[in-house]
Each structure stands twice: as structure tokens, then as C-alpha cells.
Amino acid sequence: MNLALAYPLPAPAPAPEQGIEIAVRELEVSYRRRGTVFSQVSFEIRRGDRVSLVGSNGAGKSTLLKALLGFVAPSAGSINVLGQQLSVSDTRALRELRASIGFVAQKHNLVPRLSVLSNVVHGTLGGRPGPFRWFHGIAPDEVRRRALAALDRVGLAHLALQRADSLSGGQSQRVAIARALVSEPRLILADEPVASLDPAAGEDVMQVFEEVVRAEGATLIFTTHSLDHATRYADRVLGLCHGTLRIDSASHALAAGEIRALYG
């Protein structure tokens, strides 16, 4: 019996063209209890793009980022990140892929009792695992130098030896950015990176983020509820609403009303 005929396999997703960092095709994510979060989501992101992802609470912004990191298995469709077709079952390949991605969460998620420098050194563990990167005190000089340079880029090199729990919210988020950048990732994902900060600190962090990402030439995708941030710090806006991708537009061509309509 010809099994290939009896059980036809889905055709493999075509490889994205040169310069495409992320290719999402006909993506659907469903949870058993919550039902379908979104479906038929397709987009491509080119190297060096800065993309904001907007939508109301529950629209699926964070789920989409999790799917890009391989933490959520798609119910349908395909995701290609940095030239690699994502498969949540291949944990080793996923770990290697994540090591090429910088991630900044809404909460800084620093280890509170360790020094700022140790927290940034942890950002290098994805590329090279092992105990010599658990604390800056036992890390090789080259790693310590890179971590200090990353801290310098976010303007906090002078706080390298302070404990992370002694920092303000804005400073902590900058350290989280340094931790994401220390491995020199090609792609940076940020899930509402300034949501927990006051407006001034949030503005400050977004500026640092933009400057550093631009200087590194990395691709950036961030989720936000700030319409101002969504258009000012991104070249392109993706908008999720009622389980579909409603907006995919250059930020300069987008009227504020179009984004507000997502929250209606």
C-alpha cells in the first residue's frame, strides 16, 4: 500500500526569499479552553525592520511572540524564523534558534539578588552554556567585557556591580535590554517593554531601545498599547483584532484612527 497516497503530507512551506527574517504563513493558534486566538495570519519581516504589534488585550499579541519563539505550537500554518522552519518538537533546534534572538518581557525579570553585570552575563548563556557564565565573578574576561559594553550602550555601565533589586523600574528594563543585546542577536522580540513603567521612564527606555537596535542593525518586533510608540518607534505596524491581522501598514501611512479602531 502506498502510504504517501493514503495519508498525503502537507506540502512544506516554501523557503522565504533572501533578507526575510520572519515569514509567517496562514498561522493559526488555538487553545483547548480558550478556542482560536487568531487564524489566517500571514506576514513577512525583512532584516532591519522595526515592527510594532498592536491590538487590544487578548487579541493575541503575546501569543504571536510566543509562537515566534516556539513556546506555542501552531494549530495550522507555518513559521520561519531566521531561515529556520519552527518545530516545537525539536527542542535542541529551538534552543539554538532562541540563542540568536533577544527577548525583552513586560517585566524586566532580572535575578534580584545578583549583580547587574551577572544578569547581563546570563544573556550569553544561550550561545555557550555552562557554569562559567552563571556569575560575572567566574565568567571569562571576554564575556565580562561584552556584558559591560552592552551595559554601556544602555547607559548603565556605572551600575554594573550594584544588585539588580536596587535599581529603578526604568533602569531594570534597560538592564533587561542589555541582557537581550549582549549576545548580538539578529532579531529582538519585546513584549510590551515599557508597560510597567511611568510615561517618562517608558519614553526613556524606548529611545534607548531604538538607538541601540538601530546601531546593531537588528530586526525588532515589539508589542505595545501606546499608539504613539507604535508609530514613532516602528517603520511598520501590525494590528491584530478579533483573531485576524487587520493592519499591516507602514507606520507613516497609518492614521491614528485606524489603530484606535482595533480597540473599538
Binding site: 534572538i101 539578588r113 548563556l125 557564565r133
Partner: peptide, 28 residues
């Protein structure tokens, strides 16, 4: 678990995340 999850999102192995993030948090 936040710090450990953040490290795992950057490709850090589970064992490294335990020693870097979970054990220091539980140290007191």
C-alpha cells in the same frame, strides 16, 4: 519563575536557568 523563563526565551538551557535564576532567588 519569570527570570528563568526570560533566560529560556533566549535559548538558555533548563539546567543553566535553574542555577542562574531559581537557586539565587531561593538562596535566602
Amino acid at each position: 519563575k519569570g527570570p528563568a523563563d526570560a533566560l529560556r526565551a533566549q535559548g538558555v538551557r533548563r539546567s543553566d536557568a535553574i542555577f542562574c535564576a531559581i537557586i539565587p532567588a531561593a538562596m535566602p
